[in-house]
Amino acid sequence: MTVTLASLSRRTGLAVLDHLEQSVRIPVVDGLQAQGDLIVIPLPLVATSVTLIPEDRWEPVPAEGVELLRGAAGGNPHTLVADPGTCRWTTHVADSQGLAIGVFTASVPVYLLHPEHGGSGCAPGTYVVRRQREHEGTRARLVAD
């Protein structure tokens, strides 16, 4: 089945802005992809800095999706969307860079959906989701778009 913004939006009830292309198939890729201030990284690529905390605390991703991160103002969320039973998710990760918000593992293509940024398709695999940071003075601050 072809997954488009329109079909994802219908399936989850999550709205996307109407000026985004609704009917084009969302590309599904198995590598690095960015969605605004969030990036999806195949776990093996950052295996030296990101480790899963041994305790098994994986949660199934429900039909309505999992909100990974919400923008600071206006509250636009990045939501992980998957067919029930195909994707699990955990926030119990340690990241030497301090940017990981979680790890998900998918057995079929799953999607990240955002009202302004649209959709990103992830091929089966295990991925780390990281936030973006900025350098401010002598510290780093997290970006919230």
């Binding site: 690529l45 950052v46 301090g98």
Partner: peptide
């Protein structure tokens, strides 16, 4: 940070990645 000279490396830094890692970015939305 000021020690970054290459924009790819700088973009990678914002996500805690090296320049080589960021260079493999397939898609940005």
């Amino acid at each position: 940070p000021v020690y970054l000279n290459d924009p790819i490396e700088a973009a990678g830094w914002t996500y805690g990645l090296s320049g080589e890692q960021y260079a493999t970015l397939l898609r940005r939305t």
